[in-house]
Design a protein around this nucleic acid. Sequence first.
DNA 1: TCGCTTGCCGAAACCGGTTTCGGTAGCCAG
DNA 2: CTGGCTACCGAAACCGGTTTCGGCAAGCGA
Lengths: 320, 320
Amino acid sequence: MNGYPDISEATQLRVKRMAEKLSYQPLSHAQAIKTGRTRSLGLVLQFADHDAQRPFLAEFLAGLTSGTHAEGWTLTVASSDGHADMIETFRVLLRDGKADGFVLPRAMRDDPRVQLLRDAGVPFVLFGRQVDASGCAWFDILGEEAMRDAVAHLVGLGHRRIGFINGGTQYAYAALREDGFRLGMQSAGLSVDDDLMEQDAVTIADGAKAAARLLDQKVPPTAIVCAVDFAALGAYQAVAARRLQVGRDVSIIGYDGIPEGAHAQPPLTTFSVDNKSAGERLSNLLIRRIRGEPLTDLRETASAIFADRGSTGPVPTPSN
Amino acid sequence: MNGYPDISEATQLRVKRMAEKLSYQPLSHAQAIKTGRTRSLGLVLQFADHDAQRPFLAEFLAGLTSGTHAEGWTLTVASSDGHADMIETFRVLLRDGKADGFVLPRAMRDDPRVQLLRDAGVPFVLFGRQVDASGCAWFDILGEEAMRDAVAHLVGLGHRRIGFINGGTQYAYAALREDGFRLGMQSAGLSVDDDLMEQDAVTIADGAKAAARLLDQKVPPTAIVCAVDFAALGAYQAVAARRLQVGRDVSIIGYDGIPEGAHAQPPLTTFSVDNKSAGERLSNLLIRRIRGEPLTDLRETASAIFADRGSTGPVPTPSN
DNA sequence: TCGCTTGCCGAAACCGGTTTCGGTAGCCAG
DNA sequence: CTGGCTACCGAAACCGGTTTCGGCAAGCGA
């Protein structure tokens, strides 16, 4: 069954077919004692990351489990609170051979998990990219592309003064999305006003505060691009508090595609991310990584899907 | 190390201390080949259950993983879409010895998972109770108690015409919560009007529809008790659509303690459930169940915590 | 002093696989 | 007819534990 070279293909097939007929599968933990492999992927969740969890987790898990299940592998989930605890969790999982490799959600700028696993020589895949790509396989959504398109869309509607509310700068995605925004502005021949750039808004409250700062400027923006949907929903509040109307007085574009956005009034125009298929891709990539495929084959990206809903509109004509 | 009777305690301790010093722990999959036990708990998620997931999952997982981790066990997560798929998933996990027992979230009225595992003689614990308790260990929140207290609270504010919007009737909790509501009404000497009883509202949309039916009656209720927070938020919409005000014209009490409730306007008065500690308790109970403790020691309940916020008020004086 | 019990230890079998290795049969070329 | 190669098979060692069992030494009562 294990593909030795001196057995003809015909016989291998015969044996495999019989195994299937008897629905026999070697017990993974029995193989593990000789091979050290459990056919199991590890996922360490960090619940300190408040934002990362809520809508994201269920879909992501659905994808991961369906991906692992399809290959006959398993997903082992652990959690950690603090930073030190996290390292310890990885170590224990590894020492006990509970996981052959790890999925790392939410790549960070200088990701301590990457350092740890790279040094330990343990296979892993990132949801998100890494500047220092050595040893890194990943799947990611092209957030920079989405931000660029967001600007283009707004420019197409006549907007020229456009604000940007970025997400958490400790994450790898923040730099990319800001780059995308700047590139979009540049392509449209617009300059970026530093007063219209906000950082680190990952919750509704963060977004409301950041948007308030933008809207209270002498010449406020007519449109705001948000790197994170929650921030966009916060911007809704800031707009409403100023007796303005989203989509008419201020256009807003988000990113993530959270369900709350679709149900907001007006429905949030956003770039929707398919977290389930991200999970599926990541488990596939990690399994292939563990099997030893070269890194360069294990880097995939996909595009977010533009959901053109009600929160953007033509630039308002100055009425005063 | 495995507690044989002819070894003195002193020696056992000596060995264990040395093991700790060398930070040695037997590989669970090596033991598994002799004992059949992996020291791993199984969790099969059903993503068809849209509602069950969103806010609930992250906290619940946090609790489960922290509970398993504390005992040196692991959590193995799998998922299923359909019903047949689910049975198959359990079978595979069992056959491959991937889990020694299962946590079953969201107990249902006639739970197919319970039948399956009971027949197979596999340990499991429920989040929720079961009428046919044979073979069942569980942890549950006393929803009936909460609903009873909700009625008492409203009666204390002068309400006498109180509606009830129940959750999904396929779940075990629905009957309990309805019982609690009825008991509360009875204790207050109030009769239950069947026209004020709605069933199966688990989403905001469901809740809005159910509340609309209640509010459009000839003599609408002055207060509504909802078995599920999402339904309560739906009721907010129905109230607003009728140009009434929650907490002044109509009092609303929910159950679950979802974060959206706390941020609603007015903040939702509700009975808050600690899903994280539920997860912790469940993993503890399941591990003890696997170790062979008698069932009767493995049934725990806790109370929901009343969060008296802004969505209730004294019964409005009829102004017309 | 003898025999029995108690506490401990080491050897060996086993769990369910993987991997190595020596042997055998059949086939073909020399 | 012989030698070598290919395809296959069975035996054996090993992985890291658990469990059983026989043996040994010390302590104790008779």
